[in-house]
């Protein structure tokens, strides 16, 4: 294998592996910027993966899968919002409950849905090459010969950055996450903003799951999310709740995971389990190295109680 070929392959694998994490992390960003801790990303991603795979399996159309995944992720987001915003359940407990339920329910349902042939590949989403740009060496195939989800993700990063820091909508969102009382006094519906953020966060995390089953591996297995939602959380902290840095952190974790595949391809004498461990270890070290330097939104994890209701 030539050197440029290797680099191009490695970059492509890194990008592919960071896409699910990045969708989840950007979803988590919205939720946490609004003040709702979202450890449920893992369950949302897994739900998106299962529903996306099942809908594609029944309809034979990847697009149906994508839409179904978005809808299912939104519903999980709604559940998390209801539990943590309306019922004011401890947000960790709520997230944990969602993760455990999603793991159990998808494992059960997948045995009913994908009964006969689990190795059968799902019809995925095809790549769409952008004429001209896709001819650029290395970067061309990497960035401009991808499927719609990757394009969507690449657009989402600047869009979210703009939205968060340059529009009044973003200001509203940040205000709710930092000073909910002040936002409330200014006439902003704190609960409504949090509901919307958490629901959209569910949709995005589910898209990450859909990418996993429709583009990356093309079938569903139990527990396919494998902690990607948790790595996304680490990326979020590492990226200091900023879309661009968070996406870069995801790329770092994706690149770490890709190392494992490349090394295996090269027959280097490094046991693969050691490399499977690497992304989690890197995420851990990133958190430790950044301790105290990354400040979460001030009201993160604290349920908001309107003063006038008196309870």
């Amino acid at each position: 294998m030539s050197n440029t070929g290797f680099i191009a392959d490695y970059l492509a694998a890194s990008l592919r592996l960071s896409v699910p994490i990045a969708f989840a992390a950007l979803g988590g960003l919205l939720s946490e910027r609004s003040g709702v801790l979202n450890i449920a990303l893992e369950g949302m991603l897994l739900t998106g993966a299962f529903v996306g795979a099942a809908a594609t399996f029944y309809s034979g159309n990847g697009w149906v899968g994508v839409l179904a995944a978005i809808a299912a992720g939104g519903l999980v987001g709604l559940l998390h919002a209801w539990l943590s915003v309306s019922l004011r359940v401890d947000q960790l407990v709520s997230g944990l409950a969602i993760n455990l339920s999603a793991a159990g329910l998808t494992a059960f349902a997948s045995r009913l849905v994908f009964t006969a042939d689990t190795t059968q590949k799902l019809p995925g989403l095809g790549a769409i090459a952008i004429p001209g740009l896709s001819q650029i060496p290395i970067l061309g195939t990497l960035l401009f010969d991808q499927d719609v989800l990757v394009y969507g993700l690449l657009l989402l990063i600047p869009l979210l950055t703009y939205l968060l820091f340059r529009t009044s909508l973003g200001l509203t969102l940040r205000a709710v996450g930092e000073y909910p009382r002040a936002a409330d006094t200014a006439g902003i519906g704190v609960a409504r903003v949090r509901y919307i953020s958490v629901i959209v966060s569910g949709c995005l995390a589910a898209l990450g799951g859909a990418y996993l089953v429709l583009v990356h591996v093309r079938f569903f297995t139990e527990g396919i999310s494998a902690g990607k939602g948790f790595i996304a959380l680490a990326a979020l902290i590492f990226g200091r709740w900023h879309p661009v840095y968070t996406a870069l952190a995801c790329l770092l974790f994706g690149a770490t995971e890709a190392l494992q595949l490349r090394v295996q391809a090269f027959n280097l004498n490094i046991p693969y389990q050691l490399l499977t461990m690497l992304p989690y270890l890197v995420a851990l070290l990133a958190l430790v190295g950044l301790a105290g330097k990354s400040t979460p939104p001030a009201a993160l994890g604290i349920p908001y109680v309107k003063e006038s209701t008196g309870d």
Partner: peptide, 21 residues
């Protein structure tokens, strides 16, 4: 499938969260 038990266990946490409230 045994996995129904995992679902029941996960849902137990969900319902306990609600029942606490």
């Amino acid at each position: 499938p045994v996995t129904v038990v995992y679902a029941i266990q996960g849902l137990t946490v969900l319902f306990i969260a609600i029942s606490l409230v």
